Amino acid sequence: LHIEINVNGLRIELHNVSEELAERIREILEKVDDREEARRLAEELIK
Rank of each mutant, 00 (worst) to 15 (best):
L29D: 00
N16L: 08
D33P: 13
E19I: 15
R39E: 04
E23W: 15
I28D: 01
L29G: 00
V7H: 08
R35M: 15
I12F: 12
E23D: 13
E19K: 15
E23R: 14
L1A: 12
K31S: 14
R11L: 15
R24P: 00
N6D: 14
D33E: 15
K47F: 12
E44F: 11
I12E: 00
D33T: 15
H2M: 13
N6P: 01
L21T: 09
R40P: 00
I28P: 00
K47S: 13
E27I: 10
K47E: 11
E20Q: 10
G9T: 02
N6C: 08
A22F: 10
A42K: 01
L41C: 03
V17L: 10
H15Q: 09
R39P: 01
I25A: 02
L41D: 01
A42D: 00
E27S: 11
I28Y: 05
L45H: 03
A38H: 02
G9D: 05
E4A: 11
I46S: 05
R39D: 02
E43Q: 11
I46G: 02
N8H: 09
A22G: 04
I5S: 01
E27W: 12
N16E: 05
I28F: 06
I5E: 01
K31C: 07
H15G: 05
A22M: 11
R40Y: 05
R26S: 03
V17R: 02
E23S: 11
L1Y: 08
R11N: 11
E30I: 12
I46D: 02
K47H: 13
I5H: 01
E44W: 13
E23Q: 14
K31D: 08
I25L: 09
I12G: 00
N16R: 04
E30K: 11
R24F: 07
G9Q: 02
A42Y: 09
N16Q: 06
E23K: 13
I46T: 06
E27T: 10
E30M: 14
V7P: 01
L45K: 01
L29W: 05
I12D: 00
R24L: 08
L45W: 06
R24N: 05
E44R: 05
I46Y: 08
N8L: 02
E30L: 14
R39A: 11
R26L: 09
E27V: 10
D34P: 03
R26W: 07
N8D: 11
L45F: 09
V32K: 02
E13G: 03
R35K: 14
E23Y: 14
L14H: 01
R26N: 02
D33Y: 15
V7C: 04
H15P: 03
V32R: 03
I25M: 04
A38D: 00
A38S: 03
R35V: 15
R11V: 15
L45Q: 03
V32L: 09
E20S: 10
R11K: 14
L10I: 15
H15V: 10
S18G: 08
H15Y: 11
R11A: 11
D33H: 15
L45E: 05
L21A: 06
E23C: 06
I3W: 09
I25P: 00
V32G: 06
V17G: 11
E30Q: 13
N6K: 04
V17K: 02
A22Q: 05
H2S: 11
I25D: 00
E23M: 14
L10F: 11
G9L: 01
I5R: 00
I5K: 00
S18L: 04
R40L: 09
E20D: 11
E44H: 08
N8V: 03
R40K: 11
H2G: 07
D33V: 14
E43P: 01
R26E: 02
L10R: 02
E37T: 11
N6W: 08
E36S: 08
E36G: 07
L10H: 15
A42R: 01
E27F: 11
N6A: 06
E20L: 08
R39K: 12
E4H: 10
L29V: 06
E27H: 11
R26H: 04
I25E: 00
E36A: 06
R26I: 10
N16P: 02
L21D: 07
E13A: 07
A22V: 15
L21Y: 07
L41E: 03
E4D: 06
R40T: 06
A38L: 13
H2E: 06
H15K: 07
E30D: 09
N8F: 01
E27D: 13
E13M: 13
I28Q: 05
N8Q: 05
E44A: 11
L14C: 03
I46N: 02
E4Q: 12
S18I: 03
V7I: 14
K47W: 11
E27N: 12
E13Q: 12
D34L: 04
E27K: 12
L41S: 02
N16F: 09
L21Q: 10
D34G: 05
R24W: 10
L41K: 06
S18V: 04
E19Q: 14
N8T: 03
V17H: 03
N8G: 12
A42W: 09
R39M: 14
E36K: 07
E37K: 08
E36D: 14
R40C: 04
L1T: 12
V17N: 02
I25T: 00
E36R: 06
E44L: 10
D33W: 13
A38E: 00
E13S: 10
E30Y: 11
R39Q: 09
A38M: 11
R40Q: 09
L1R: 06
K31I: 08
A38C: 03
L41G: 01
E37R: 07
V17Q: 04
E44Y: 10
R39Y: 14
A42T: 09
A38I: 09
R26M: 09
H15D: 06
V32D: 03
I28T: 06
H2A: 09
L21V: 14
H15A: 06
E20F: 10
E44C: 07
R40A: 08
R24A: 11
K31M: 12
L14F: 09
L29S: 01
E23N: 14
A38Q: 08
E19F: 14
R11Q: 08
R24H: 07
L10D: 06
K31H: 13
L21H: 05
S18Y: 04
R35D: 08
G9Y: 01
N16T: 04
L21R: 03
H2T: 15
I25K: 00
E30N: 12
A42I: 15
D34C: 02
L29M: 10
D33S: 14
E13V: 15
A42G: 03
H15T: 09
I25N: 00
I25S: 00
G9N: 03
I12C: 03
I46A: 14
R39C: 07
V17W: 08
A38N: 02
V17S: 03
E20R: 07
A42H: 01
E44N: 07
V7D: 03
L14D: 00
I5W: 01
E13Y: 14
E20Y: 12
R35T: 11
E13C: 11
L14G: 02
I46Q: 05
D34A: 04
L41W: 07
L29Y: 13
K47M: 12
E43L: 15
I46M: 10
E44Q: 11
I3C: 02
I28N: 02
A42C: 03
K31F: 11
I12P: 00
I5L: 10
E37M: 10
R40M: 08
R35S: 12
L10P: 01
H2Y: 05
E36H: 09
L1H: 13
A22K: 04
N6S: 07
R11E: 06
E19D: 08
N8Y: 01
L10N: 11
R26Y: 08
E27A: 13
R24S: 06
N6Q: 09
D34Q: 04
I5V: 07
D34S: 08
E43A: 09
K47N: 14
E19S: 13
I28G: 01
A38K: 02
L29I: 07
H15E: 06
E37P: 01
L14M: 09
H15W: 14
E4K: 05
A22H: 04
V32S: 07
R11M: 14
A22N: 02
K47R: 13
R24T: 07
L21F: 13
D34R: 03
S18F: 03
L10T: 13
S18Q: 05
H15N: 08
A22D: 00
K31G: 14
L1I: 14
I3L: 10
I3P: 04
K31P: 02
I46V: 12
E37S: 06
K31L: 12
E4N: 11
I25V: 13
L45G: 00
G9R: 01
I46P: 00
N8P: 07
N8A: 10
E23F: 15
V32N: 09
E4M: 10
E4I: 15
R39L: 15
E37F: 10
E36M: 08
I25F: 05
L29P: 00
R26T: 05
E36W: 07
E37G: 04
R35G: 10
E20M: 08
A38G: 04
I3Y: 09
I28R: 05
G9C: 02
A38R: 04
V32I: 14
E43F: 14
E36I: 09
V7N: 05
E20H: 12
G9M: 01
K47T: 13
E44I: 11
L10Y: 12
L10C: 06
R26A: 05
I28W: 05
V32C: 02
V32T: 14
L41T: 04
L14S: 01
V17F: 07
N6Y: 05
I28L: 13
E36P: 03
L41A: 05
A42F: 14
K47G: 12
I5M: 07
V7T: 05
R35P: 15
E20G: 08
N6L: 13
E36Q: 09
E19N: 12
R11S: 13
A38V: 10
L10E: 08
K47Q: 14
R11P: 05
K31Y: 10
E19A: 15
E43Y: 15
S18K: 05
L45R: 01
L45I: 13
E30F: 11
N6H: 12
D33K: 15
L14T: 01
I46R: 02
L45T: 05
I3E: 03
R11Y: 13
D33R: 13
